[in-house]
Design a protein around this nucleic acid. Structure first.
Lengths: 180, 180
DNA sequence: CATGATATATATCGAATTGATATATCTGCG
DNA sequence: CGCAGATATATCAATTCGATATATATCATG
């Protein structure tokens, strides 16, 4: 699934600028399961415009550069529906923190602790963030996706809270002599 | 974390060829939290060799091309330890299936069902696969990482089993007239 | 026994993506 | 008043992806 398809998908939520689409991947509805940066969004919108799959309207703004608001055309909607008939690729996770934990024996104990604390804090934030969303009026499909994210964050936080000893056991023993 | 660093990390598990490193990301220990393809692994190993961070030894083989087995040098181990002092980037998930579920209203009901069934089956496989691993003799750090994967897979499978109705509710109503 | 699929093994290449940066201005805070 | 952060578009080098090429062994299937 390329960024062009993702942009078409984002525009089904309503007209938006490149900047706003970026935010959908950063903090918005797509944040939990996909990402895209300016460097791929702006060229993608340009190409989609050329192909007639999206329309563009410039809104003058004082000071800031003109806002270019894109919208899905009928042709674009059809193209998106076509893309959605494919088989989705397998999920891809890339977690530098887990790589580091895996290689923890090559790490300084203090830094390991710092990385762990940051990682847990991050997942707690994510969880709190999803939990604070209002589900009223959200379509069941999207609640399914949101719930999936919630379940994942919850599982991650619980697991870390219950199993941190696996990462710190040896260090603790060395430092305190004995601790459970 | 670039592929060069990942290769150094993979080589801490023992000497390996590019092909074997790829498999570590495909089915092996890294499969659950990172990935890398030939197109990045082979150039990375070449560069690491030039920089003296890994050593290389060719093993003749009958028929198949010579196997090039790489090993971590002392300099390489130091370089890896240096890389592991950084702050890890945020986890990145990209799930085409979740994008599709999010946009399910634009999809054919039959295809949606097929995608869902495939997705659930895939996570069940993953879970079974991790559960069948033997934990004996594995260091606690690595058990932590493995357990994290297990927790995630378990959460995904349970969530999908319990909440599929959110994706199919409307369709079911249309087709059967009423079904809970 | 032939055929085809899968595994071993390295390597390359165009296309896509990342991540950082440049530019310019407004808003809100202390 | 200054400074950080938000708004907004855009580009670019470096990296990564995904597919493909090459060559052979092995294993199952009809």
């Amino acid at each position: 699934m390329d960024v062009k398809t993702l942009c078409l998908g984002a525009l089904t939520l309503g007209n938006a600028s490149g900047y706003e689409i970026k935010k959908m991947f950063e903090e918005g509805p797509f944040a939990y399961f996909h990402q895209a940066g300016y460097g791929s969004i702006y060229p993608a919108l340009g190409k989609l415009c050329e192909e007639g799959l999206v329309s563009m309207q410039e809104h003058e703004q004082d000071g800031r550069p003109d806002k270019k608001v894109y919208g899905l055309t009928a042709k674009g909607k059809t193209a998106l529906e076509g893309k959605l008939t494919m088989q989705p690729a397998k999920d891809k996770v890339r977690s530098e923190a887990l790589v580091m934990f895996f290689l923890a024996e090559h790490m300084d104990a203090e830094h390991l602790r710092k990385v762990f604390d940051g990682y847990l804090a991050c997942y707690r934030d994510n969880l709190e963030c999803v939990n604070s969303l209002d589900d009223k009026g959200v379509s069941p499909h999207r609640l399914f996706v949101r719930g999936f994210g919630k379940a994942f964050y919850q599982a991650a936080v619980s697991y870390m809270e219950e199993n941190s000893h696996l990462l710190f056991a040896e260090t603790d023993l060395r430092k305190t002599g004995a601790s459970k």
